[in-house]
Nucleic acid binder design. Structure first.
Length: 915
RNA sequence: GGAGGCAUAGCUCAGCUGGUUAGAGCGCACGGUUCACAUCCGUGAGGUCAAGGGUUCGAGUCCCCUUGUCUCCACCA
């Protein structure tokens, strides 16, 4: 492909295709593709190290390499793009680094599934061939998600794109592993882990999801050896009874005091096991007797530890009952002295050996029943731990795994949030973060998968020594043997994503210019659903390895639900494909929908209605711009010396909007900011200013026309800048058609408040006239005066000179054929109908067109409302503590309001009596 | 069991550090094709801001409590 560096302006000349011949409706698809390509090929997304600028950097939460763009990505990336575009325009050295995550379990599961379709298994292929396939898969689908992110308009630096398994990230992983191992913060041991028999791997506590399932309580009778009585024990997992090595009672339980030190006979196996006293046995629950299976239950594991009970494993790791072969394997290890501490014994389950755990459950229950030792079966709803990937039931198993010792790592991470070094937005998520961080247990980081970072540990086949090193050692450090075998396992996918904010900037090379300039990153944007998985691990990792919190602000957003408020899911089939939405309505409309009217950290709903409203908004901007450009002759924008009243009004309003939107964006209040821009564009600019400007814009006075063109273009240009972070495409497209300095809108500077363009008095005067316009419109509409029926309007007001411009405005907007403003009431009001504002009365000779009775009702209603308000205001002013304690401005405002309402009431009364 | 969110117009939701008469979109009613836009314009109806209590000159906003609802964490023999 030809990649000539064409000077930017050549592209830019062609980037906009806006012209007089354009269709009346905006067609986003064509514009978006062309615009994104122009930005990218001109290097607009590049983060540039510039010591003169302040850095602002974001690391993108890496989507799964095999993933498809969904609404979660859309909201996440829209928010990041808004921030990065805003900061870039504000003059920061902005860098947004994208990338993808290898997503160990999810990806491996997909590859295995694809292989299964060909009749292949991992074992058939072998590790090397499997990895070849996996990389090929990654190449194929890794680009898909990256392309899809582009359609959203994401302005990230693709030249710095990373992948959690690329060379740079893998280097960081190795560095951290070795480091923690040397500090004894990573260890290997036999511990209770969550085992997914389908994925055939251990998973961390965080990866277990609890689902309510229908199950049963099986009440089994265990015979006490010494007394011959039967103890009733309820269990939800009867198949684990083969691994029981005790039953527990509470020491204080009066029912069982006589059984202290006794034994029970385990049914089916006829094995004698002790009765132990342990706090775990809850007198309130069930019969107060609980079976203890240390090898297959986390609580029982602890009980077993306290009482030195043997551990007996009766399940295989692929979900079957153990048998002779498993025992033989265990014995072989034992004989060669390679059993590690804490490894459970293995049981030959005899007739149950080889059954799946489900089959064994049925068989065991049937056998117990035949023996008369099944007392009852009780129905029960309970939460069952399931794998967050495949939703199979998790089996707790003792297994030899690698762990990260969390205690010392968690402490600084807790402190960073408590001290405000890291702030969550909204603040309430600090609590869920702290809750997670304070209660976290050691993190199981090894996975029995092939797709991932392989654990850098080599075991000596001769002496059993563990050698941990960055590269394969040639001989065992302890005995010198060359018979070394690398640990077959890989690391938890979150182990590498925990390092993401600094590994992508070059760490552990702390001299890397990117790392030096952009680290720590500024803002992290992500959903509340992965605070525990990811955010907290990045925080403790950053603090531990780089000595700095990896970011200072964590902006949390909610999830996008469907129109009924349900979570979007594959199984429900209610997911909305953002790509389809973009194709149909444009990325700008989707982006705006995702932020407008949403509040930080709260879930939001997708609805056709909302996206249509946003599509209409893009169309509104398009048409307003099209209208202005069609009739515009200026080729540079320069505000005129002479500003008309309405010019001052819109410029003054613009200042307010700039100030407020900037403030809102700096405080991550994107929803509010979007709403303000929307209102300013649609209501202030289109409905009022453009309509008012038409008098000059379409008029014959060349000088006036040029003046108003300049104001229109000036305001429009700032509007485009304000809107650009939210709707990058349409704003760029229109900007290119406006008279402008050569360059892209996305690289222009953010609008600033200009105090010399604030005109509070003119704003107020303009608003009085607008009140008058609205009052006339209301009256005409109420009485269905046809638009074609124009009428003269007499404005009666104390200060007629304040209504100098009202004639033009009322003519254009309120059906006036002529206007005069006077201070004294005309003598003859017959045939006139009057409307009132607080500042003026407006008389029109339309009495024959109105229904006097309904007009009287209308005025009376207004009057009542005003009188009620006056009462309220007067009470306030009569309140001494209000006068003395409230700020002066508030009191003055109320005083003004009193004057205003009093005047309005007077006007309304006059109108009533004149009817 | 612990923590948190939400409850505002018919519907979906905004409302930032308490301060005029609580807003938007959609829907509804009425009127409108005057050459930017009917994906539009104008006008209107519709809310005791879930209930109760408190702090305050002033509460949709802060505190307490109740109810309903959703979510997360923990537990569940």
């Amino acid at each position: 492909m030809l990649s000539l560096r064409i000077p930017a302006y050549i592209h830019i000349e062609r980037i906009s295709s806006m012209s007089k011949e354009l269709p009346k409706t905006y067609n986003p698809a064509e514009v978006e593709k062309r615009t994104y390509e122009a930005w990218e090929s001109n290097g607009c997304f590049r983060g540039i190290i510039d010591p003169k600028k302040k850095p602002y950097s974001i690391s993108m939460p890496p989507p799964n390499v095999t993933g498809q763009l969904h609404m979660g990505h859309a909201v996440d990336n829209t928010m990041q793009d808004i921030l990065i575009r805003f900061k870039r325009m504000q003059g920061y050295a902005a860098l947004w680094i994208p990338g993808t995550d290898h997503a160990a379990i999810a990806t491996e599961a997909k590859i295995v599934e694809a292989m299964r379709q060909e009749g292949l298994t991992k074992a058939d292929l072998g590790r090397d061939q499997f990895m070849e396939r996996a990389w090929a898969w990654k190449e194929k689908f890794g680009n898909r998600i990256v392309q899809q992110l582009r359609t959203l308009g994401s302005s990230c630096d693709w030249e710095r794109e990373h992948f959690t398994m690329d060379e740079q990230c893998s280097k960081a992983v190795l560095e951290v592993f070795i480091n923690l191992y040397n500090q004894k913060l990573i260890y290997r041991g036999n511990r209770m882990v969550n085992w997914c028999p389908k994925c055939d791997t251990s998973i961390s506590d965080a990866e277990v999801e609890y689902e309510e399932k229908n199950g049963h309580f099986w009440h089994i009778l265990y015979k006490v050896k010494e007394t011959g009585e039967f103890l009733e024990i309820a269990t939800t997992r009867p198949e684990t009874m083969l691994g029981d090595t005790a039953v527990a009672i509470n020491e204080a339980d009066p029912r069982y005091k006589h059984l202290h030190g006794c034994h029970v006979i385990l049914p089916l196996l006829n094995k004698e096991i002790p009765i132990v006293c342990d706090e775990h046995a809850d007198m309130e629950k069930g019969t107060g007797v609980v079976k203890i299976t240390p090898a297959h239950d986390p609580n029982d594991f602890e009980v077993g530890g306290r009482h030195n009970l043997p551990m007996v494993r009766c399940f295989t790791y692929d979900g079957h009952m153990t048998g002779k072969a498993d025992v033989a394997e265990y014995n072989a290890l034992k004989e060669s002295n390679r059993l590690t501490e804490g490894e459970p014994e293995v049981l030959d389950c005899g007739k149950y050996a080889g059954m799946t755990t489900d089959e064994a459950r049925k068989a065991i229950v049937a056998d117990l029943e035949a023996l008369g030792q099944l007392k009852e079966i009780e129905d029960l709803k309970h939460d069952v731990g399931t794998c967050y990937r495949c939703h199979s039931t998790i089996e707790p198993m003792i297994s030899k795994q690698w762990f990260v010792r969390m205690k010392s790592l968690a402490e600084p991470a807790v402190k960073a949030a408590e001290d405000g070094e890291i702030q969550f937005v909204p603040e309430r998520f600090t609590k869920s973060y702290l809750n997670w961080m304070k209660n976290t247990r050691d993190w199981c980081i090894s996975r029995q998968l092939w797709w991932g970072h392989r654990i850098p540990a080599w075991y000596c086949d001769d002496c059993g020594e563990t050698n941990v090193a960055k590269t394969a050692p040639c001989k065992c450090a302890k005995c010198g043997s060359t018979n070394l075998t690398q640990d077959p396992d890989t690391l938890d996918t979150w182990f590498s994503s925990a390092l993401w904010p600094f590994s992508i900037l070059g760490w552990p090379d702390t001299e890397n210019p990117d790392y030096k300039f952009f680290y720590p990153t500024s803002t992290l944007v992500t959903g509340y659903d992965i605070i525990g998985f990811w955010v907290s691990r990045m925080i403790f990792s950053g603090l531990a390895y780089t000595g700095k919190a990896p970011f200072s602000k964590v902006v949390i957003h909610g999830i996008v639900r469907d129109a009924q408020g349900r979570k979007m899911s594959k199984s429900l089939g209610n997911g909305i494909d953002p790509l389809e939405v973009i194709e149909q309505y444009g990325a700008d409309a989707l982006r705006f929908m995702l932020v407008q009217g949403s509040s930080p950290g709260n879930d939001m709903r997708y609805s056709e209605e909302k996206i249509l409203a946003m599509r209409n908004f893009t169309n509104k901007i398009w048409n307003a711009s099209r209208f202005l450009l069609m009739n515009m002759s200026i080729d540079e924008i320069r505000l005129p010396e002479e500003l008309a009243l309405e010019d001052k009004w819109i410029l003054s309003r613009l200042n307010s909007v700039i100030r407020e939107v900037t403030y809102n964006l700096e405080h991550f209040e994107m929803g509010v900011a979007a709403q303000k821009i929307y209102d300013f564009i649609w209501s202030s600019f289109c409905d009022w200013y453009i309509e008012l400007a038409k008098n000059r814009f379409n008029g014959d006075d060349a000088e006036k026309k040029q003046n108003v063109e300049n104001v229109l273009a000036y305001v429009l240009r700032d509007i485009l800048k304000l809107l650009h972070p939210f709707m990058p495409f349409i704003t760029e497209e229109i900007y290119q058609a406006l008279p402008h300095d050569k360059g892209f809108l996305m690289l222009q500077s953010w609008p600033e408040v200009r105090p010399e363009l604030s005109f509070p008095e003119d704003e107020a005067r303009m608003e009085k006239i607008m009140e008058a316009v609205k009052a006339v419109r209301e009256c005409r509409s109420e009485h269905k005066v046809p638009n074609s029926k124009k009428s003269h309007i007499t404005i009666i007001t104390a200060n007629p000179e304040e209504y100098a411009e009202a004639g033009d405005f009322l003519a254009r907007l309120a059906g006036a054929s002529g206007v005069n403003a006077v201070s004294a009431e005309p003598d003859d009001l017959s045939g006139m109908v009057t409307v009132a504002t607080a500042d003026a009365k407006l008389c029109m000779p339309l009495k024959e067109l109105i229904d006097v009775e309904s007009e009287r009702a209308r005025i009376t209603k207004d009057l009542e409302k005003a009188e009620k308000e006056l009462e309220f205001v007067k009470a306030k002013l009569a309140n001494e503590s209000f006068i003395s304690k409230a700020p002066e401005k508030v009191v003055n405002d109320i005083r003004e309001r009193e004057a205003k309402i009093t005047a309005l009431i007077q006007n309304l009364r006059d109108m009533l009596s004149a009817l």
